[in-house]
Design a protein around this nucleic acid. Structure first.
Length: 566
RNA sequence: CGGGGCGUGGCGCAGUCUGGUAGCGCGCUUGCCUUGGGCGCAAGAGGUCCCCGGUUCGAAUCCGGGCGCCCCGACCA
């Protein structure tokens, strides 16, 4: 492609709305333009890159025997009512057609795929099946953000596996896991596979493929031993805390206006790890007291697991007062009767701690869990940086990441609800066991941009860069330079190098700046001085290393560099 | 949905408090000049000041209502 014929609207300045580096640079480099919140037009460069990404995905899916489908994005409500998701999922775009028939735009396609499965799969002999598509998905997100990171319409590769039993699902799941690793490897991304929270569907199991980047919106805990998990699910051992040997009974002491842990730390000089934080929740309309170490944070996701229900909310100050006869800031578990008390496991075995006295402006010291109050112990805290790995005991790191893909063992949730059954070899009717597996295509591009940029622009991994190289003729008015550029461009085409020839009559500075911006991993620079020696330059964008090569070897040398991987 | 910010030419912004002919930089067009890091000179084009209503002789500016976008939080099948 010649730049004079390409539509690559680069911008010197990023629109003020863009904050994340990937967002700013994809706009500045002319990849995308915003249409509305969470909706972006993919221009030439974005489309080109996304087509390369989808081709990689397609190849790896096909390699595990998956079959590509293409289903409508527009779907009738009936199927979604069958599984209950019509009412349960609040991000569905719903509307009526001219006949007042309920329709929605697909957020994923479990229902539609399962519908096909139940109509067409009748025998174990037809199993296993893996069906996938690369299709638009629509979600009425409360808050779209960060350019292509959280969109209302986006491209997703979603696949669905249908097996006779769990053992079959394990195989389909593992195939996907391996395919996903190959896909993200081939896309040149740094990523981490993390165990993921799998909701309240017992026995389910999932992994997320996470790209470390500051623009991400998920936190994962990572250990040197290979353990990694989303913070929603991650478990850890809290580093041990030295408690004093004191065996004294709880003793009240005045703490005027000391309400927060922070204030109490300043007031008493004790560390927050020596304090018990008391939180009240209303769980299905009944109060539950939750205890945490002062420096720990409650995980509502884990709380839901521990309680076996998601129906809860923090108690109001009035509800808390009714229970403790004290205001927030002085709550504690000692002498509380007739209420369920749930303590984080990090409190087990501790002694001589400090907590609220259930009397305003008063706290208790010498409080020992198990002696001074009884509680059920559960893991309900969010892993903190520095907590110890449950497996290897080494400190965990907390890393900010972007979710690229998710593989999920669904089990029989959809097949059961929709009656997708086949006959097994004994003639018995069995419900299909399903998995579902997603990849966000725009997120691959965003993550690649986040992981491969500097102030001047992008340098995307070769397999997903819109162009593998840009040929920059420094001065198109110089006949020798122009012709050398043309020659390299022609040869690149012959050699199947996907190159952009910058043949614009611009000043060199403009062309270099644009070349730095748009994400090609290499630049071949043709300039007057070197050309007089019969030389041009191969410039690696990521390292900014330039090396001279003979004009006639330029494309060969470029190919070598490209093939070496970048 | 709660909190905050913003809306003026394609992009970045000033002007709004204190009402009086709509400005600057970049970009764009044309000509000259220049040609290895967004060069210089000159002449131009381009704006419903987010929308609706009100106040006023007069509204980008004041008042009321609405819409849109961004950020933080909540949420995220």
């Amino acid at each position: 492609m010649r730049w004079t014929q390409a539509f690559i609207p680069t911008m010197r300045e990023a629109p003020a709305d863009a904050e994340a580096p990937s967002h700013q640079l994809l706009l500045r480099a002319g990849y995308i333009r915003q249409v509305a919140a969470g909706l972006y037009a993919h221009l030439f460069l974005a489309r080109k890159s996304l087509l390369k990404i989808s081709q990689i995905i397609r190849e790896e899916m096909n390699r595990i025997g998956a079959q590509e489908f293409y289903l409508p994005a527009l779907n009738p409500a009936e199927l979604w009512k069958e599984t209950g998701r019509w009412d349960q999922v609040d991000v569905i775009f719903k509307f009526k057609d001219r006949n007042a028939h309920d329709l929605c735009l697909g957020i994923t396609h479990e229902e539609e795929m399962t519908n096909i499965a139940r109509q067409e799969l009748h025998s174990y002999k037809q199993l296993p099946q893996i069906w996938y598509q690369i299709q638009e998905k629509f979600r009425d997100e409360p808050r779209p953000k960060s350019g292509l990171l959280r969109l209302r319409q986006f491209l997703m590769k979603d696949s669905y596996s249908f097996d006779l039993d769990e053992a079959g699902l394990d195989v389909s799941y593992q195939k996907h896991y391996d395919a996903y690793c190959r896909i993200f490897d081939r896309c040149g991304l740094k990523y981490q596979v993390a165990e993921a929270y799998s909701g309240m569907m017992g026995g389910s199991y999932s992994h997320e493929f996470m790209a470390p980047t500051d623009a991400g919106e998920d936190l994962i805990a990572v250990s040197d031993c290979g353990y990694a998990a989303n913070l929603e699910k991650a478990q850890s051992k809290a580093p041990p805390v030295e408690d004093p040997p004191g065996e004294g009974a709880p003793e009240a002491f005045p703490t005027p206006s000391q309400k927060t842990i922070e204030q109490l730390v300043a007031f008493t000089g004790e560390s927050p790890a020596r304090m018990i934080k008391t939180l009240d929740y209303m769980v299905e309309s009944k109060p539950v007291v939750i205890l945490l170490r002062g420096d720990h944070t409650l995980s509502e996701t884990k709380l839901a697991m521990a309680l076996g229900t998601g129906v809860f909310r923090p108690a109001t100050p009035e509800e808390a007062f009714a229970l403790h006869h004290a205001h927030l800031g002085s709550l504690g578990p000692v002498n509380l009767r007739g209420v369920r008390i749930l303590a984080d496991s990090a409190l087990a075995g501790r002694r001589d701690m400090m907590t609220g006295a259930n009397q305003d402006d008063t706290h208790l010291r010498h409080v020992t869990p198990g002696r001074d109050f009884e509680a059920e112990y559960h893991d309900v805290r969010v892993v903190a940086e520095g907590d110890l790995c449950m497996r290897c005991g080494k400190p965990l790191r907390v890393v900010k990441t972007m979710e690229l893909g998710h593989v999920f063992k669904l089990g029989r949730k959809y097949s059961e609800a929709m009656g997708a059954r086949v006959l097994d070899e004994t003639g018995k009717e069995v419900t299909l066991v399903m998995g579902s597996y997603g990849i966000g295509l725009e997120r691959i591009l965003s993550a690649a941009a986040e992981q491969n940029h500097d102030q001047d622009g992008l340098f995307l991994p070769r397999p997903i860069a819109p162009f593998e190289a840009i040929i920059t003729a420094a001065n198109m008015d110089d006949a020798a330079v122009r012709e050398a550029g043309e020659k390299i461009y022609r040869e690149a085409q012959t050699q199947a190098v996907d190159a952009l020839f910058d043949d614009r009559p611009e000043r060199p500075g403009v062309k270099f700046k644009d070349a730095d911006l748009i994400g090609a991993p290499y630049r071949v620079t043709v300039g007057k001085k070197r050309l007089e020696q019969g030389m041009v330059e191969i410039f690696q964008r990521s390292t900014r290393q330039a090396r001279p090569v003979r004009l006639e070897h330029a494309v060969g040398a470029l190919k070598e560099e490209l093939d070496r991987g970048c």
